[in-house]
Amino acid sequence: MDDKKAAILSEIPRLRRYARSLLRDRDSADDLVQDCLERALVRLDNWQTGESPRRWLFTIMHHLFIDQMRKVNRRGEAAMLPLEAGEAQAAPADQVETIASREIMDALQAISPDRRAALVMVAIEGFSYAEAANILGVPAGTLMSRIARGREELRGLLDDTSRRRSIRIVEK
């Protein structure tokens, strides 16, 4: 196995974590990682040795994610009915989550994809503002405002959730 492939393999856990934060569902997230890896391998020659495989791969994955989100938006985004309480499905056994984990992951999914990506890139994946701005292809100022708004939105959603839980509203 050549060095490039070994370097890519070692990035898979991080790519999976980033994908999971973007999409939450494990299979969907792994599908995104798979699309990313397939695209990366086709473009292996574009990747200069010495360049961080992490940034290169995250950039590829982010483009895949954002392209699809734009398509989804064009299809019309307000098409969902709130699910009935009874429809809620239990997480599969291999995805056991604490209530706190579930709440924060739900909230993360509910903020806008651009803000979610920016926030996760910096707060979870540990990229610097400059690196994250580069990967996301936006100016640093835009990145910062996405992070700030993302955090604020996340906080608001979590507050709503805990308020709803504490007064035990059962939505029918």
Partner: peptide, 9 residues
């Protein structure tokens, strides 16, 4: 996720 975000968490 996008669609449901509209309808709330």
């Amino acid at each position: 996720a996008v669609m449901l975000a509209v309808g709330g968490l």
